[in-house]
Simulated assay, not measured.
Amino acid sequence: MSNAALAQTLIRAVDEADSATRLVQAVQQLANARLVETIPTLIATLRYNNPGAAVAAVDGLIAIGKPAVQPLLDLLDGHNYTARAWAIRAMAGIGDARGLDVLMAAAQHDFALSVRRAAARGLGTVHWEELEVEQAKVAQVNVCNVLMGLGQDPEWVVRYAAIAGLQALAQATIETQPALVSTILTHLQQLTNTDPDAGIRSRATRALQVLQTLHGCQSEEQPTVTTVEMNWWLTLEKLYDRKFQERMTLPEGDPRRYQDLAVALTEAVKSL
């Protein structure tokens, strides 16, 4: 069967799905095909009131990559906020430099913390090689300023994502922008001392340790992290991994998701 014929078969299954569960399954199969021909249908799915299908569609768009970027950017002009939010998540996952302005605006101003979080993480993993050297340097400074500004975001998950973004940005600019890396290190050092959340302090400390190991620089004051703070960081990483694995294996709304999460949280609290 040709790619075009396969795409049409999978698209038809999405169109003919007669329940929320079947829609999720059909979109997952469509996403797994990774065919350019499926992009319009995957994007249309973002408008449905079905989070499970939207998650599958986002994963499919990310897997397809660059060909999905312009259609996603076109969608951002629409009035459907839910679709816009899912599209931003997809843009963040693809990392195409054409989405820079959209991601910076979303990270700073979107009212949904999940969208700000996704945009912050995405800003750290932009494919800088797609830009001219000088253009990339200017953009990297702008992104750094946005991510550091998110250190004041009231939601800790956004601040956490901003640290991950800063770490990735520093790793991408170690050879080309040492002054920018120094700025990031200074900011991370400040967070280890000032952020009220143990999870944020431990994540900033971890980022400092990774960056200092990579390029052999040391900050003036070495950060310290308590056992409790390090446990927070490890726990959060494990929970994120568990969330991803469950999303891949359990249908949307399955109560076992919440049961497993409750067990994980209980074990996490015991370890502190």
Score class of each variant (00 low, 15 high):
56 A>D: 07
3 N>D: 12
209 Q>P: 01
78 G>E: 09
213 T>K: 12
32 N>Q: 15
73 L>S: 08
85 A>S: 15
267 E>W: 02
154 P>W: 12
255 P>S: 04
65 G>K: 03
151 G>F: 11
235 T>R: 11
251 P>W: 00
197 D>K: 14
68 A>P: 10
237 E>N: 14
163 I>K: 00
139 A>Y: 02
69 V>S: 10
247 R>N: 15
70 Q>I: 10
151 G>L: 09
44 A>Y: 04
19 S>H: 08
266 T>E: 14
201 R>W: 06
53 A>W: 01
107 A>N: 08
31 A>W: 00
31 A>C: 04
5 A>N: 10
16 E>N: 10
218 Q>L: 14
152 Q>D: 14
189 Q>L: 14
101 D>I: 10
1 M>H: 08
110 D>T: 05
226 T>R: 00
69 V>G: 07
62 I>S: 02
151 G>Y: 08
36 V>Q: 06
85 A>C: 10
43 I>M: 11
93 G>A: 04
7 A>H: 07
83 A>Q: 01
168 A>C: 09
112 A>S: 11
179 A>Y: 12
138 V>I: 12
182 S>P: 03
118 A>L: 02
132 E>R: 11
125 T>G: 07
28 Q>K: 14
106 A>T: 03
100 L>T: 05
59 D>V: 07
159 R>E: 10
106 A>L: 04
41 T>M: 12
265 L>D: 00
96 D>Y: 05
205 T>I: 01
54 A>W: 02
254 D>C: 03
267 E>A: 12
97 A>C: 13
198 A>M: 11
48 Y>Q: 10
132 E>I: 05
99 G>S: 15
70 Q>V: 11
136 A>R: 05
185 L>C: 11
82 T>P: 02
88 I>G: 00
142 N>S: 15
265 L>A: 03
233 W>T: 13
167 Q>Y: 05
47 R>I: 00
167 Q>P: 01
135 Q>D: 12
102 V>K: 02
62 I>F: 03
139 A>F: 00
175 E>A: 09
31 A>K: 00
237 E>G: 13
210 V>W: 02
223 P>S: 05
35 L>W: 01
268 A>G: 12
210 V>S: 09
94 I>E: 00
245 Q>I: 01
234 L>K: 13
98 R>D: 12
3 N>Q: 13
174 I>L: 12
92 A>C: 01
57 A>D: 06
259 Q>D: 06
187 H>P: 01
149 G>R: 13
90 A>T: 03
195 D>F: 11
89 R>S: 11
108 Q>P: 06
14 V>P: 10
260 D>V: 03
29 Q>E: 13
214 L>M: 14
125 T>Q: 09
214 L>I: 13
36 V>E: 06
150 L>C: 08
188 L>N: 05
60 G>S: 09
51 P>S: 07
102 V>N: 10
28 Q>C: 07
252 E>Y: 08
53 A>V: 01
185 L>Q: 07
136 A>I: 03
